[in-house]
Design a protein around this nucleic acid. Structure first.
Lengths: 148, 148
DNA sequence: TAGTATTATATGACAGTGACATATAACTGT
DNA sequence: ACAGTTATATGTCACTGTCATATAATACTA
């Protein structure tokens, strides 16, 4: 009767808000936004939809987080925002990447390549310990492990 | 006059404590500890040294963070800690992985594989936009970009 | 013996990020 | 008039990492 109280304890302690799994997308929002803006200016809502389409961030994007991040990136000089005049149509903030933003994006690419190497180091160790049967073993009672 | 006030703004705004680069090791401490403990019980200080040796976490490990993480993992039932009696030698908390911990480790391995795929999606897009010259281009003024 | 370093664990304060909820406008469709 | 969509914004909270500091006991060394 291990953790029969509505889900494994490492899955959030109750379901939501993180838990023991860091989201797979940690730290991906900013570089993803930079990447999309490197292809052309867009406003926040459009970026949100694009992130879903491109599957750069699985599991959808938090809207509030997105706008906050854009604001901070603007404050840091990574992007430039242009507020639409209060004319017809809903107000939009169209963002354009700056040279600094492009430079950071290049560094992000290098950093992410390093990250894959770290993950590979981990996975190599893991497979060395657990063998090739990395998946859930047959002895593992197949409970509702709704990962992701 | 791009950010000539003591370093690029995306580098921490002043130097330390994160900044625009999430550390490459975000979210790696817990799975790394689980992996080491899957090979055998150890106490915190030993784990700290091992993490440095195995290079599972580049840049060293924060000691306070390590102990806090171990405590939380114990609270969650991922590891079991045994406090040494107050006899000779310094007190030690020897941790042993639990079945739940092993199960989580397996899921972590799968999640990290997914993460590499996400990173590859990003990098593919990046190279599609910027071409093969992913590195810092020749036009990029080579400022003190002390990445990492 | 006193002072310092090492081993080992622990806590406090802070910033960055993501998750969830909610608020706000303006426009669109019925 | 009412609800839905588009679009932006803020508040609160949890988790992680970073830096600083506290605490003991042991080991070394002058």
């Amino acid at each position: 009767m291990h953790h029969g109280f509505g889900g494994p304890p490492w899955h959030g302690g109750g379901g939501r808000r993180g838990g023991w799994f860091m989201p797979l997308t940690w730290g991906f929002l900013q570089p993803s936004l930079l990447l999309l803006l490197a292809e052309g200016p867009q406003h926040g809502y459009s970026l949100m939809e694009e992130l879903g389409r491109r599957k750069l961030l699985s599991g959808g994007v938090d809207v509030g987080n997105l706008y906050r991040t854009l604001h901070k990136m603007e404050m840091a000089g990574l992007v430039e925002g242009v507020r639409s005049e209060p004319g017809p149509g809903p107000k939009r903030n169209v963002y354009r990447i700056t040279p600094q933003g492009k430079e950071l994006l290049q560094h992000w690419a290098g950093a992410l390549e390093q990250r894959t190497q770290m993950i590979n180091t981990f996975l190599d160790e893991f497979h060395r310990v657990f063998g090739a049967d990395a998946g859930i073993g047959p002895d593992s009672d197949s409970e509702d492990v709704d990962l992701l």
